[in-house]
Amino acid sequence: MLSFILVILVSFVFTGVVIRTKSIASGRKGPGIMQPMKDIYRLFRKGAVYSETTSIIFQIAPTIYFSSVVMAIMVLPFGHTRGLISFNGDFIFFAYVLALGKFFSIIAALDTGSSFEGMGASREALFSMLVEPAFFILIGSLGILTGYTSFHEIFMTFHFSTYITYAIGVLVTFVLAMICMIENSRMPVDDPKTHLELTMIHEVMILDNSGFDLGLILQTTNLKFAMYGALIANLFMGNLVWYFTIPLFFMFQFLFAITVGILESFSARFRMSHNAQFILVLSSISLLVFFVILMIMNKF
């Protein structure tokens, strides 16, 4: 319950911090950190325009996308407290429930019958397919290390004791952060601020959404950021007491947001054809984590 509330709280400011960092890095004044939320609130109050080509799928998809992410957040633990949903193998549920949301966002894009949105859908489907193995190998390896298969127990028993565990920590953080960037269609895979439809992934899929639905989709992106941030924070919080973990949690989310902002300010987007290679690299880094863990466990 605690993690659920905290993640939702963080999601309100996460993108704001990212945008603020970017504006500072580029020497602009920039909007305040609550600006994304204000935009979403404004969208919630607006009417909507629907394409004549669309069907009921287009209407229900944003809702299912949103609720799938909310469900996934419920799985996340927070230090000593379990998530609202916690059982052996809950990370499989986490990954698959996110996939459900993605399925709907893809078919909603196809529902508009537009060439742009089909393009985005095609890319989203391909990239999320490639990213799936990396996540499973990563959490599976952590499962070997700790001997458990649920998020809560994995994070509770994952300790930083030797240098090699720090190395694992760094690698895991890197992979999780990159998965987050890919899932949210940010740099270096996709540039949310690009102005050419031909080079977009996520943004081009939601071209036809407006009003409440668009607000819902934008808020889902914020939630997803905060969700992955929480996952990374959990990795380092271990089994400390709550008055340490709660500030630690906010600190990690804040750091993560700033990192995302800096990354987006100083890196360029990959060529679309190179994205697949980049995402496959994540799987191999996960395999690296796997082998390092085998070494620690003396399983060779």
């Binding site: 996939a99 893809i106 196809l110 391909l126 397919m129």
Partner: peptide
């Protein structure tokens, strides 16, 4: 995991192309 991802690609294609769009 790969099978799951590929199946999603396949069925978004099948459903999307047959039933959606114009």
């Amino acid at each position: 995991a790969l099978i799951g991802g590929l199946a999603m690609l396949c069925f978004t294609k099948a459903f999307g192309m047959i039933f959606l769009g114009s």
